[in-house]
Nucleic acid binder design. Structure first.
Lengths: 329, 329
DNA sequence: TTGTAAGCGTTATCAT
DNA sequence: ATGATAACGCTTACAA
């Protein structure tokens, strides 16, 4: 069954192409009866306006791209997943489709970036949501500006103050530090992967008077690194009695290793994770965590995009971190 | 800075539009020197071929859509997330972009479905990956056929034998049943959400001689439902000594409630989850689970799509379930 | 190897 | 309210 184009379709049903076009574009100026007739016939004959011709003729794209740095390596990226869910629920029923654009850090970054750049500049996307956190994110913002595509960045990006949904990792970490002090802990440790200077600093601030006791362990971002961190701490800093992990997966690994060695949590060591991914409550003990409200952030970012797409202006949004207390601290 | 089109660009650099086009489309017939010159100038002047005009002129779309039923309701859908990761890693560097298309079950399904239908039939997608599991999935396959878009379905769909990457939930559940029998368990329970007749049946088969002792609890698919299931079982079937949960999140809820009530796992009750999501190993006790190898499945599906897009034929793929032993059973 | 020009299927402008 | 037709920006015969 060959596909009908507007010319064939319109001539079959006996109207002009312009009328057919009007029937499908809420442009007013058309008899309601004619409109209904055309819509009905289209269903019958299987006519569908070609989307490329449409986009070409009146420049637009109803596709939003979600760009994010690939940090976690092999494992499923729960962090992005939660953001994506939020974005999707906001976009659902808006008519905007979501495309996901992970980009690797370091090595292959350039190639991917160039691909995305070309794609965006060629008009492929109608909007961009960019998750901050790497040099490439910054480049992508430049691309968005260059292509004059509405965009919103998630997270903190220096120089970008207008189109953002941001949060302050430092503030979240401070909360954790203060909590440890308040609950009488004495020997804190921080377990971090890459890219979290702000978390470290915030933690230090929150720790206040006991900040000079802080031990820092930097491995990777994965489960296994959390476990490694515990073992190393146990060997070199057995006095450690509280730990902030840069993400919940690290915290899970840390707890696992602690339990295997016979340490009890939170009695021997209190642990707080970061991100508050939804599996945090599944753990035993249920993980206390600095919540970034990722789902909410995704939702907000997408709503901002929708506003921009409607031609409205937006104001930057800041989402406060919150310490969620469960059983691990 | 106004955007250049091919006409302007070509006239500025003194060649024809055709030559510019050739420079960007590996069609041969062009002097390598000219080509390099054009590419260079394009970079300098910021010329980018309009993607819509391109797709219009020679029908194509380098976008693949991942369609999946929205089952989990509010919470992040870890199941799909792992598939998506696999798909993405296969697509990366292929030049194919990924669009994600969740569709709600029941109520609003029709609207969403119609939107997607229109989109696909209008030529928006170059390929479709469809996760089976609802009536809408079946409709989407029809759409793919109608639009003559290459597609692959993930999971079991009756009537669809050609373009699939499938697995057999029943087989996986059988494994669990057999294991429980082999390890001397006597009073099995099954905790399921929706849509899992096959799991139930397979489990029953695997249970063999103790299958007549099976208790079935059907609540929802979420964490809380797993916890509820434990409490109900404890009240009504205290003899229960082994449980298969229809997914890992249910299992996590079940375990949590069991621990709170003082039951030990796996001594008092052995529990096996389903899907083997990556957080399974974070739990305490680490969750034994029927692995669907979701990441691998996503990878395979995307590879099949790539083959189809290259004009090659494919043969259906079947992925065997595997029981992953950890500490909960 | 390169240029000319006819599509590709819409939307938008201008008549009617 | 509807119809004719000129863009929209590219690809691809066909000619040179």
């Amino acid at each position: 069954m060959k596909k009908l184009n507007i010319k064939e379709f319109s001539s079959i049903i006996g109207v002009s192409t312009a009328t057919v076009s009007r029937a499908f574009n809420a442009s007013g100026r058309i008899n309601e009866k004619t409109r209904r007739y055309i819509i009905e016939k289209a269903g019958e004959l299987g006519y569908h306006a070609n989307i490329h011709a449409r986009n070409l003729s009146s420049p637009r794209s109803n596709i939003a791209g979600l760009f994010y740095p690939l940090l976690a390596g092999e494992q499923p990226d729960y962090f992005i997943n939660e953001i994506q869910q939020g974005v999707q629920s906001a976009l659902m029923d808006s008519g905007i489709l979501l495309q996901v654009h992970p980009f690797p850090a370091r090595a292959d970054a350039e190639l991917t970036l160039e691909t995305y750049r070309t794609y965006v500049l060629s008009g492929g996307l109608g909007a961009m949501i960019i998750v901050a956190g790497s040099a490439e994110s910054v480049e992508l913002v430049k691309v968005a500006r260059e292509a004059e595509v509405p965009y919103v960045v998630i997270g903190h990006m220096s120089g970008e103050t207008r189109y953002t949904v941001s949060f302050d990792n430092g503030q979240g970490a401070r909360l954790a530090g203060k909590f440890f002090v308040r609950t009488g802990r004495r020997f804190p440790a921080y377990i971090g992967g890459h890219l979290d200077k702000r978390k470290k600093l915030g933690f230090l601030e929150g720790l206040g008077e006991i900040s000079d006791k802080l031990t820092i362990h930097s491995g990777g971002d994965a489960f296994i690194h959390g476990a490694n961190a515990f073992r190393e701490l146990r060997a070199n800093r057995p006095e450690t009695d509280c730990v902030l992990c840069a993400n919940d997966v690290l915290a899970a690994g840390f707890i696992k290793a602690a339990q295997e060695s016979g340490a009890t949590i939170p009695e021997d060591i209190a642990v707080i994770g970061f991100d508050d991914l939804s599996f945090a409550r599944y753990l035993t003990p249920a993980l206390s965590s600095v919540s970034l409200k990722l789902n909410h952030i995704g939702l907000s970012a997408a709503r901002q995009i929708l506003k921009l797409l409607d031609g409205n202006d937006i104001t930057p949004e800041f989402v406060e971190c919150e310490l969620i207390f469960r059983d691990s601290a």
